[in-house]
Design a binder for these strands. Structure first.
Lengths: 204, 204
DNA sequence: CGAGAAGTTCTAGCAGTGCTAGCGACAAGA
DNA sequence: TCTTGTCGCTAGCACTGCTAGAACTTCTCG
């Protein structure tokens, strides 16, 4: 971008930026892999640096700190979840709500460390009115779409938040061994039944 | 208890045991206070030792490690929650379910660090078929009692787990700033409405 | 081609963490 | 009074996230 932008200069710059971006992604992948293999406690800056075959300070030239790395993993995880939910189409005679719920819970079950980074560990990802990462909006959007068919005259977004909260509660409590595994099926049936068909007279 | 149990010997023994028990509780209280004031990150063995005015190794003569201290705080927290739920009687025209839900969520909102130790941080508290702490059973029992009036012909324990999961999801996602505060009321209304009145025809 | 400039990566270190070995003081019993 | 045993302390280990500053490579330009 400098005024002395000769031909070779630009391409070298490009190559550097490309390599930097690749290494950036390499770090994120390594962190996620390590966390999924041994839990987030095992993700230390030293082990991570060793895994990407650079020294620790290199991590800090890409990310402000360890938290920022976890955040990057979390955001990409949201993208994955969104993709999974979009792909989850109901099979014969199954509601879309159920398909989404099952996809969500399976994601949480199969990628506990990733799920943890996304929704359990506290991070300063801006969820509020600020510019939320697109991946997040996508994932939530998929949930909204799944809830829409059963909303009735209820508030769509609030209802989706209820749906999400319930799934999240089930996912985390299950992960912590705090729910009875033998109720897994019944529990989901009850939740979906309650959310789908409630004709909610107000009060009491 | 020894064969040389003279009079003064026994009382001295008793005094010692009593003082030990007091200090045990002192450590738990200090840990909880510190966590509630500054978050669990601030609860280090050094700061905790300083607060109880003993050196670090004393902590380890009472607890196996830092995790054990957190666990003790969590279990006592369950006792508090159980007490709060038992006290939470519905006001005029309010369902018992709603009273319990509001009490639960207020507890989570007002004691976030304590709630965290109880239900978020992973611990090796035996939730399964092992001997679960009584405080935990009490708390869950209160939830069961609140759900009972609306169970219909549904499975009581599984339904209670759904109720609990939903509350837990709402509590933790709210705490992480992941839900919209302006929906707080609507969200709870929707959840209670769904759980109370669903006449659940099976399937779809 | 070769010297200076620019940028990049590494070594080494800081302050803090959970936890523990082993010493020293103190109290109980003979 | 001397021995015995309990108790709490000091000091230290191996680890954490993070960073200053040296050392090295790469590019620019006379």
């Amino acid at each position: 971008m400098s005024s002395s932008a000769r031909f070779s200069g630009v391409t070298i710059q490009n190559r550097r930026e490309r390599e930097r971006a690749e290494r950036h992604q390499l770090i994120i992948d390594a962190a996620r892999d390590l966390a999924e293999a041994e839990g987030w406690d095992a993700v230390t800056t030293r082990r991570l640096a060793e895994k990407v075959e650079y020294s620790q300070p290199v991590l800090y030239s890409h990310f402000k700190g360890k938290d920022a790395i976890v955040r990057a993993v979390a955001i990409q995880g949201c993208g994955e979840l969104a993709r999974l939910l979009r792909k989850a189409r109901p099979s014969r005679g199954e509601s879309r709500l159920r398909a989404a719920a099952e996809a969500y819970l399976e994601f949480a079950r199969r990628r506990p460390a990733l799920y943890d980074a996304m929704f359990v560990q506290q991070s300063d990802i801006p969820w509020g009115t600020d510019e939320v990462p697109q991946e997040l909006l996508d994932a939530f959007g998929e949930l909204v779409a799944a809830v829409e068919p059963v909303r009735g005259d209820r508030h769509l977004e609030a209802l989706t938040e209820v749906f999400w909260s319930s799934l999240h509660g089930i996912a985390t409590l299950t992960q912590g061994g705090r729910l009875r595994p033998e109720y897994d099926e019944t529990r989901l049936d009850l939740l979906l039944g309650a959310l789908s068909l409630a004709q909610h007279e107000d009060g009491l």
